[in-house]
């Protein structure tokens, strides 16, 4: 069976950047947000790689990447992603901030997905990250899925096995390092991916060239998303006060340190 896989993926600050909130006219924002290097959200990246593998193994399948962010940043991030796997970009213009409202982002994503020409819901798999490194809510995908009428939803997915009968066996992370195994009759379904187990695909210049043909037109066509933060009021956004008075123990032997730690563990 072939699939139409739509991967929802935001862009987030490169993971090692120093982040600081500031109050902007439109609500909280990150200091120097436009200057921070950005990457595709790490969980959504896994979703994209999983989508590419699934599409590769199911001839006739196609992958779209739906992403909302400032156009210049989206363009930049796409140049690091587009050499990895084949996809067609659907771009939405708007802030990539974690402080945007999940429900409004979900509405924009659902609308963009519905507008994909030739979309066949009987083949539709909506992928994304189970959380993001920005809002970190784990809520957007479900709401987008509801708007698309998808009632078979899975979160914290680490593995998807497509059966010959069109069914999908899905492993979701649950408490205690365990996985719940479910079987879904087939598309349409929505999967929020955890990290899975695929390594990052290698850069392939030919894939880059092929993706590129549609990338710039997609960016040029990017529609602005309505993100007003209606009804939402931030009272404060602060960095945690986490400075501790660290006692530095330099001159103790391993035996003495071990004794001290053993006592500390037991108390």
């Amino acid at each position: 069976m072939d699939y139409q896989i739509v991967v929802c993926a935001g862009i987030v600050p490169d993971p090692l950047q120093t982040l600081e909130p500031v109050a902007a006219a439109t609500g909280p924002a990150l200091k120097n947000e436009m200057m921070l290097p950005a990457v595709l959200d790490p969980w959504a990246s896994h979703a994209l790689y999983e989508a590419a593998i699934l599409a590769k193994n199911a001839p006739g399948s196609k992958v779209w990447l739906v992403s909302l962010g400032p156009k210049a940043k989206l363009q930049q991030v796409m140049m690091t992603v587009a050499q990895k796997v084949p996809f067609e970009l659907v771009a939405l213009e708007g802030p990539a901030s974690g402080f945007t409202e999940a429900a409004e982002v979900a509405a924009a994503l659902a609308e963009a997905i519905q507008a994909i020409p030739g979309l066949d819901k009987s083949k539709l798999l909506v992928f994304g990250g189970w959380e993001s490194a920005s809002r970190g809510a784990g809520a957007t995908l479900q709401m987008a899925g509801e708007r698309l009428g998808i009632t078979e939803q899975f979160q914290g997915v680490d593995q998807l096995v497509a059966g010959a009968d069109g069914s999908l066996e899905i492993l979701e992370r649950i408490e205690g390092g365990r996985h719940q195994v479910s079987k879904c009759a087939g598309p349409p379904a929505l999967l929020g991916w955890a990290t899975g187990s695929l390594p990052e695909p290698k850069n392939n210049p030919q894939i880059g060239m092929a993706n590129m043909r549609a990338l710039m037109p997609a960016l040029q066509k990017a529609k602005p998303a309505k993100l007003a933060g209606e009804g939402l009021k931030f009272l404060s956004v602060t960095l945690p006060k986490q400075l501790r008075a660290t006692q530095i123990v330099k001159d103790k032997s391993p035996d003495a340190i071990a004794k001290e730690i053993a006592e500390w563990i037991k108390t």
Binding site: A72, Q75, Q76, M79, T80, Q83, N203, P205, G208, M216
Partner: peptide, 17 residues
């Protein structure tokens, strides 16, 4: 400048390569 050049669609710049 990289964004500006690429947005012309005339050239491609691939980082990490």
């Amino acid at each position: 400048v990289g964004g500006r050049v690429q947005s012309t669609g005339a050239v491609q710049i691939w980082p990490g390569t």
